[in-house]
Every structure is written in structure tokens, then in C-alpha cells.
Design a protein around this nucleic acid. Structure first.
Lengths: 83, 83
DNA sequence: CGTGTAAGGAATTCTGACACG
DNA sequence: CGTGTAAGGAATTCTGACACG
């Protein structure tokens, strides 16, 4: 499992997100796709799930930095609406 | 399951076979990858398993036509060495 | 901050064919 | 029959930047 086999185009289809969004999550250190020799990204199904979670949380109002911290400490948090 | 998400390059890495071999199996109607709008092939993990089985059987001496018939009628066969 | 986009280039894949056998 | 290869083109992906906000 955890095999990185999908190109970004497939991930876009599976998630409904844009390449820009997916690359941005990587830029913010939220996902870690592998690279081919040529430099192309390769994602796993777990990456796809992570991407969907990230997008979900962002819809709830969290920003990428908060999401990164949530990853470290798995402690529950109030939704932004209640802070 | 059965999601067609891999490009041929990834399948080559996973199987150790060449693009030529993989495309040939498709030409002989042994595997059925999907296509992107642009015409690029997309394979599933089941396709990868099928490809490995095909290669295995060919190593044993079967040709592609025999393998296609084996798919239809799941009846056991003698290996080529014993025919 | 998060995302769209145009720009130019590079990696990847495609088809049809010739070759060998 | 099964597979390698060179050929030319097309689809896909990449980066860095400008934009808006």
C-alpha cells in the first residue's frame, strides 16, 4: 500500500480540485508526493484522501498552517467559527 | 476498486516490462486500459496483476492467442511442453 | 492566503512502421 | 509471434511569476 502511482491529472479528477490547489498543499507541506526521474509528481490513494481532508477542513475555515499543526498534535480543536 | 489511475510508465516500473510489451498485450485483447480525453492509457492495479500473469504464462510457453482463450474458458490446460 | 492564469520548456505517451525471425 | 527502435507529433506536467485580495 501507499504506492505512489497517480499523476496530478488523475488526482484532479478524483478530487475535483485544480492542479494549482493540489500543488499548493504540497508547497505548504501538507502532502508529500514522490517524483519521477523527470520530476513529475506521483500520488498515492492515501494522498488523495489527505487532499480531500485538507480541502474539507479549509472549507470549514482552517488555513494551511493550522492544518499542518493539527497533523502534529492530534488534539481536537474548535472550528474557526467558535474561536 | 478497479480504478484506472496509472500511466504506462508506472506500470512499466511495477512490472519491469517495456511499454512495447504492455501495449502489445492490449493489442491482443488481453488487457483493457481506459483512455484519457487526450488518448493516454490509464491502468488499474488489477490490470497490473493481469499483465504479470500474462507475462508469467508467456514465459511458460503460451502465446497471446492461447491466453485469450484461457480467459474465456477457465478450463485447465497442459503446459506447452506437454502438448 | 489561496487560487487563477499565461508562458515557455521538459517529461511522458501515442501511433504506425521497419526490423528480426 | 513478440519485441526493439527511431520518428514525429500530441497530451501532460513543471516552474516561476503576476494578479487579486
Amino acid at each position: 500500500m501507499e504506492s505512489k502511482v497517480m499523476s496530478i491529472g488523475v488526482v484532479c479528477e478524483l478530487t475535483g480540485l485544480s492542479e494549482r490547489q493540489i500543488r499548493y498543499y504540497e508547497e505548504r507541506k501538507l502532502i508529500f508526493p514522490e517524483r519521477t526521474k523527470g520530476g513529475n509528481r506521483r500520488y498515492s490513494f492515501e494522498d488523495v484522501k489527505a487532499i480531500q481532508d485538507i480541502y474539507q477542513k479549509m472549507q470549514e475555515g482552517f488555513n494551511t498552517l493550522e492544518l499542518k499543526e493539527m497533523k502534529k498534535s492530534k488534539t481536537p480543536r474548535c472550528t474557526p467559527a467558535f474561536r
